[in-house]
């Protein structure tokens, strides 16, 4: 039986990187159908149709599916579920909201943040902030799961799948979208960036945090932050890297003024090369850093930015 992959669409645009990496993770399970939902998603559906390994795009263009509201979106997925053994999506805020709801409606368990698909019913996923990796086999007939995309390489865009318009239940009476407060930036997206520069409590203030952004811009990098930096208001919530924030695995991760709590490491320890700048030589971040610089960030960071 086929795989139904719920695609992320943000503001009418396909989240291509997330979807293409999820495709890479699940393509061994069978024919993959992509579900694109939301009014005005025509362009996203067309982009989805070009991804390699997609055999069909289902496009549900009802207004009720806009803004990723969980109740109508889950009802739509459930209405299609009969034809699929696997129902999945990238482990994004959107799918983490919708897919557990889908699973419960189907009376099956959900597996979130899957890092490897072993076979049709066996999956690997991290637990305890990544301190352990579990291999689990599900007895459910339908498998509902989200994929942690950081460790997969995106499929290419040389395909040409048909797009089929569909409709489904579209009751929008339970919740209403009011507003998105989304900052747009020219920087690469955190979860797909090749380089990430992150700042922590060590920065001391929102003004000082600009130092991190300057270095990131010099490197063409995305900006990340520790929970402490976000809680203190130095950085917005969507920059948080860690157990309960975003999981990244760039070629280069630079941690500045971050101690290296296990909850932070959970979000970045699979990066290829890790650099840490911290004035405390005992900071746990140095245990995972390939290159550690024990220094005051207020002198080291401007110097680094200047010399690059």
């Amino acid at each position: 039986m086929a795989v139904l992959l719920l695609a992320d669409v943000n503001d009418g645009h396909l989240a291509t990187d997330q979807v293409a990496k999820t495709l890479a993770a699940v393509k061994g399970l069978g024919e993959v159908h992509l579900l694109v939902a939301g009014q005005g998603g025509d362009a996203a559906a067309a982009d989805a149709a070009r991804l390699e390994g997609v055999s069909k795009v289902l496009f549900a263009g009802d207004h009720a599916y806009c803004h990723g509201l969980a109740e109508p979106t889950a009802a739509l997925v459930v209405s299609l579920a009969g034809g699929y053994e696997h129902i999945c999506g990238a482990a994004t805020a959107f799918n983490k909201n919708v897919l557990p709801r889908v699973a419960a409606l189907l009376d099956v368990m959900v597996l979130t943040d899957v890092t490897a698909v072993v076979d049709a019913s066996t999956f690997e996923r991290p637990i305890y902030a990544g301190n352990a990796v579990q291999t689990v086999k599900t007895a459910d007939a339908k498998k509902v799961f989200t994929v942690r995309t950081a460790n997969f390489t995106a499929v290419g865009a040389g395909g040409s799948a048909p797009v089929e318009a569909i409709s489904g239940p579209a009751d929008g009476s339970l919740s209403k979208w009011l507003e998105d407060k989304v900052a747009t930036s020219d920087r690469p997206e955190l979860t797909s960036a090749k380089i990430v520069v992150s700042g922590g409590r060590g920065l001391g203030s929102e003004e000082n945090f600009a130092m991190i952004e300057k270095l990131a811009d010099k490197l063409g990098a995305a900006v990340g932050a520790s929970r402490a930096a976000v809680d203190s208001g130095y950085a917005p919530n969507d920059w948080q890297v860690g157990q309960t924030g975003k999981v990244v695995a760039p070629n280069l991760y630079v941690a500045i003024g971050i101690s290296g709590a296990i909850q932070h490491l959970a979000g970045m320890k699979d990066s290829k090369v890790i650099v840490a700048i911290n004035k405390d030589e005992e900071a746990p971040i140095f245990q995972v850093a390939d290159y550690g610089l024990v220094a005051d960030l207020f002198t080291a960071v401007p110097e680094l930015t200047g010399k690059l």
Partner: peptide, 28 residues
């Protein structure tokens, strides 16, 4: 509904090095 087949330690990272200066960091 799930059977845990195995619980393993994640792959560890090998210890890195400390660099002495910003110049050395850039060179590395």
């Amino acid at each position: 509904r799930l059977t845990v087949i195995k619980t393993a330690e994640p792959a560890g990272r090998k210890a890195g090095v400390k660099v002495g200066s910003v110049d050395e960091l850039i060179a590395k």
